[in-house]
Design a binder for these strands. Sequence first.
RNA 1: GCUCAGGUGGCGGAAUUGGUAGACGCGCUAGACUAAGGAUCUAGUGCCGAAAGGCGUGGGGGUUCGAGUCCCCCCUUGAGCACCA
Length: 857
Amino acid sequence: MAEEELIYDFSTIEKRWQEYWEREKIFRAEDDSEKPKYYALDMFPYPSGAGLHIGHPEGYVASDILARYKKACGFNVLHPMGWDAFGLPAEQYAIKTGTHPSVTTMENIDNFRRQIKNIGFAIDWDREINTTDPEYYQWTQWIFLKLFQRGLAYVDEKPVWWCPNLRAVLANEEVVDGKSEVGNHPVERRNLRQVVLRITAYAEKLLAGLDDLDWPDSTKRQQKAWIGRSEGAEVEFAIEGINEKLKVYTTRPDTLFGATYMVVAPEHPLLDNLVIQEKANEVKAYVEAAAKKSDLDRTDLAKDKSGVFTGSFCVNPVNGEKIPVWVADYVLISYGTGAIMAVPAHDERDHEFAEKFGIEIKRVIANPNGDETESKLPYSGPGVMVNSGEYDGMDADACKSKIITDLEAKDAGKGAVNYKLRDWIFSRQRYWGEPIPLVWVSAEDYEIAKQTEGAIKDLIPQNDVTTQKDGQLLYALPLPASELPLQLPEVENYQPSGTGESPLATISDWLEIWFDLETGKSISRDEAKPEGTTWVSASRETNTMPQWAGSCWYHLRYIDPKNPENLVDKEKEAYWGGPDFYIGGAEHAVLHLLYARFWHRFLYDEGVLANPEPYRKLFHQGLILGEDGNKMSKSVGNVVNPDVVIDAYGADSLRLFEMFLGPLEAVKPWSEKGIEGVHRFLRKVHRECLRTDKHNAKEESNKDTLKVLHESILKVTEAIEDLRFNVAISQMMILINHLQKVDSYSIDTAKALLQLLAPFAPHLAEELWGNLGGQPSIVNEPWPQARKELLVTEEITIVFQVNGKLRGQGQFPKEVEKDAVISAAKADTKVQSFLEGKEIVKEIYVPGKLVNLAVKG
RNA sequence: GCUCAGGUGGCGGAAUUGGUAGACGCGCUAGACUAAGGAUCUAGUGCCGAAAGGCGUGGGGGUUCGAGUCCCCCCUUGAGCACCA
């Protein structure tokens, strides 16, 4: 064989097979297959202008290995790809340059697609989706309208996070430590009209549904914490001198006797009633100061407690004691009832406050460990009730429900559940997002709509959705499905208006319309008003949806990406179910993954879907750091470009190395030397498989080779199933090292190696498969089965220990008796030197493994 | 501050779940081939020690014939939460 033929020309090989796979549609997923299905899903990328970075392929390679492996195991595999393409960068680029975001987006998608195809994934490209395609987003809008119809979307003018730099409103989840998650700009509170989704209605379902999911624990915990369910009681305190009750929420009704003051939040609606004349100025000043504080100041910085006495008193419903009412900003208006009963003896925050303002601290739970000194307060552990009247001596925890029952009997409270989860602010004041398909009409026209038979009437929610505009109350009407998609209009200027309205608000011929209350059809108000009594003047909603919307349901559209009639065909959805494997970054633990569960569960409740949960098995790949151990970033200059890596080593080397770096979930640094290592391995495979002089026969006869081969089949298979791809690759290296050492091996052995390698380095495996006489494609070959009987050898090695330390070993037939092994161990010269002058007190024999002689003296 | 997950050679990491610690790869050392080697191959490579041997999985204790693995305390790194009553 000539030298040249041994060169591993990965560029040619990879190009050849990528073209072949695409041309032959090797990875097409069948909707009507008899085979069991396997659906491997990647979190689809945002196609940024920077192109693919080295982190993207990590998850994609992992899912691709599973997809190819499962295909070999006889599954009908769906491994799709698409683009989460609405978003701020394209819009900001448009603001800067005037280029339409769709132009930038398409360019970026073309680049991403090219880069992804260069890595040779087993993707069914016929199912590619794009969230900015009207054919796609009409269904995003359709789901929104369903939510609207069921009263799960409403409009509210409420304080929201406004980012002046981004000129946009952000969701709670998009604000981290008082800064925008994107760009790290400062944010502030502003009252703005917002479209809000009632995700809180799903709090319980979203919490309960977590239990059955095969997700990383940390992610489940984060979602649990975000939903933040707590159980306790709502207790009503009479206010002296006012005919109002102050309602508080507490998780510790058992500490009710220890309540020595109350606190209302500065924004509490009863505050004005509570403040007595002499305190009015002081309280007013405090409330104004609190309003000026950003949330950053209120929560993140100095936790120094502040507050002002209102001059009013409440009456404790359990013992009639008078309790002073304070106002303090450590109580949040947005949680519970915005007011608390403070129990300084058993709550850290209340304790700090009481110490500072000299308020009584009254212990009502005794520490069972006996330490009753005041210095041990606050105490929040379990214990026995004290200073609590009739409840004294009872176990505090058990007492909670008893006190709740007693309060209910007195009509002074009830058991209650609270969640930290807030409703989802769904509107964005941006251009580059899905238009929200609502129109605003007058009260009179709204009444007509409710009585007009047609496309709209039944879509109107039970509770009216209204907003104030220029002193007029307007009512929201939905567009019927027949009017979808509601497409984005062309605009001159992508800049949001500084008042917090989207640029769509400036497109008057799109905004101001004639609207038919019967059919939902509309035309611009620039045109003449059509004939007919049901045509009225209306204006469109100008907000667009957040980027999360499109990714809430994309896993469904891959199942049936071109269906013009439905979001997804029911039969196809029943066949494919949800993804069997979902991989993406851990940064989406509470954002995308919670929103998508919400929408999916809603669609399930609506009877649209057969499964309540979208992602049964979830995995987060770990970050790949730069070679210097720091996060890759342009400014540090440690970014690795996948295009450059592919040019230098090939896609197979890139794939293999990303998996060989370490455990899939671990954060791990890139290494240029490391990729040379796996590249060397692939070259070895290439060279060995082409050495026809070594392939002596079709079937393998060498016992050692058979053993190593089948051990490898077993270990690689197990490692793939366990997502431990680094271990699988190690085992293949062991196999090739063995084949390199032996004089000859069979073609079957070489082919089995290629099959194991195929999910990891598919191009090279496909190429060599052909060279060894296999028919393309190796992708369709059944996965090799390990013959475990070949792993058992006639002779076994048993190690000898003295006091647990290795001192020798011996070869024995596999059926050897215990006594024979122990005698051999004692006879071992080295073992003997450690037994000398000592007494054997115990002889341990682990069959087939080891002997341990415990000695003393 | 609270909660969780980790700490194994010079480096990335293996270890049948209580039974030979350090597989595999990188790096390093020596040698072979060579005009040359940043290619390839061979041998070696946890630490100390000439060897015998000793010591070794963040530190300290414990359980056990036997501990990287189980228990307790501490140190440390990372992630999440951060006035949620």
